[in-house]
Design a protein around this nucleic acid. Structure first.
Lengths: 219, 219
DNA sequence: CCAGATATGTAGTGTTCACTACAGATGTGG
DNA sequence: CCACATCTGTAGTGAACACTACATATCTGG
């Protein structure tokens, strides 16, 4: 019965190009014309492969978070909570000013506020950011159990804090902050984690956060 | 020679409504139809009064930053650098989750990335944010001169840091973080300023920042 | 009350948007 | 070589967009 004509472009290569357009112009600011031109294909190919504009964004986000995930694994592999925070924020300072990419972070640049019909795009991005936050939180929970963080420290709050700084740095980068400026921010930011650090008797990780359960929904 | 028919709406009241629309949907996401409906006027009145959509945004930003300016004056009136940071970030946690307004900060929600024809909108917002950062920096310069911050501390870096945290909190707020979550972030963030605080012999404020001059361009 | 000036409401303008109909091209299975 | 399935390029589709022409309404100054 035949399997049809094979596609003439590489989906991942095309996604990389689309990712850059979304990264630079945001979801709403990116037009199908810009996307197809960057991807080197025509609209019907785009729609056959990704469904619609939002499907393309999600595919680009999948690719972005996948690449970012391997880096985050390196980040949480640092020895202490303090080193995790430093490696994360210093790395972000570098990545967000890497001339190979648009400035800032796709998970922020993609769209913080959107118009009618795209209301869920910001939440889609927020969900991806919260994955990073969760990974940080788990790492800080471990750090606390290992006596690397104060027994009174709140790993979820610390993770939320580091995520917030990362997002703020992304916004700064996209509006022109240079690498040195972001590194200065990172250097200061790490000191808040340092204030929670030290060498304490290991906590059995049983009661980890007595404070009210407050989900941030973002990172 | 006559002075013409008087306008039937109050410009500031209308601006408040427009501000809320931009705040909720961003510059590109806000449509003239939404704006005129919220303002209770028709398009010709809008264009006669504000020029065009971008002119309306700028007018709304002027109003926003004016209101914010009086609050910032209260913030920098705190006794120490640490108290300034705490008052700023705790206040932001409350303001950005005030149900009377859309969540987050207009200077962030307004537009981080924009499409062709609106490229300067993000810079317009960044310029307004940097005003806050400058005000903080000046306050921290004074704190350092008063011996309230370490002689080795960098007021510009600290101001940039506080601004970054504020922006990050705004993004979190707009994607669903509640007040408690933001306050936790603020509490952690203040500790980085605390680490730079203490009681030191006053610095004559002559050579204030030996590090390379790095302008952030954002806040 | 009139002339000039500015505001308002109705009803559009052209443009750009995301998306697609369709015909032709290129593959596979029989 | 033929039926079938899928992709590709051309050329649009209707809808939504920012913005405006124009007639009418409401003011001031004389």
């Amino acid at each position: 019965m035949g399997m049809g004509r094979p596609r003439e472009f590489d989906a991942e290569t095309a996604l990389d190009q689309a990712m850059e357009v979304f990264w630079r112009h945001g979801y709403e600011g990116a037009t199908i014309a810009q996307l197809t031109e960057a991807m080197g294909i025509n609209p019907p190919s785009l729609y056959a492969c990704f469904g619609n504009k939002e499907g393309l964004l999600k595919a680009a986000l999948d690719r972005y978070t996948k690449l970012r995930g391997v880096w985050m694994d390196e980040v949480v592999a640092a020895a202490t909570a303090r080193d995790v925070a430093e490696r994360m924020l210093m790395g972000i300072a570098d990545k967000q000013t890497d001339p190979a990419n648009p400035p800032g972070c796709l998970l922020v640049q993609g769209g913080i506020a959107c118009g009618t019909g795209s209301e869920n795009v910001p939440f889609e991005l927020a969900a991806r950011r919260s994955q990073n936050e969760d990974q940080l939180r788990d790492r800080f929970i471990r750090a606390k159990a290992e006596g690397d963080l104060k027994p009174a420290s709140d790993p979820a709050a610390l993770a939320r804090y580091v995520s917030a700084v990362a997002v703020g740095m992304g916004v700064m980068a996209s509006s022109g902050a240079d690498r040195e400026a972001l590194r200065q921010v990172a250097t200061v930011a790490v000191q808040a984690i340092e204030a929670q650090s030290g060498k304490y008797p290991p906590t059995p990780a049983v009661k980890q956060t007595p404070s009210k359960q407050t989900r941030s929904g973002t990172a």
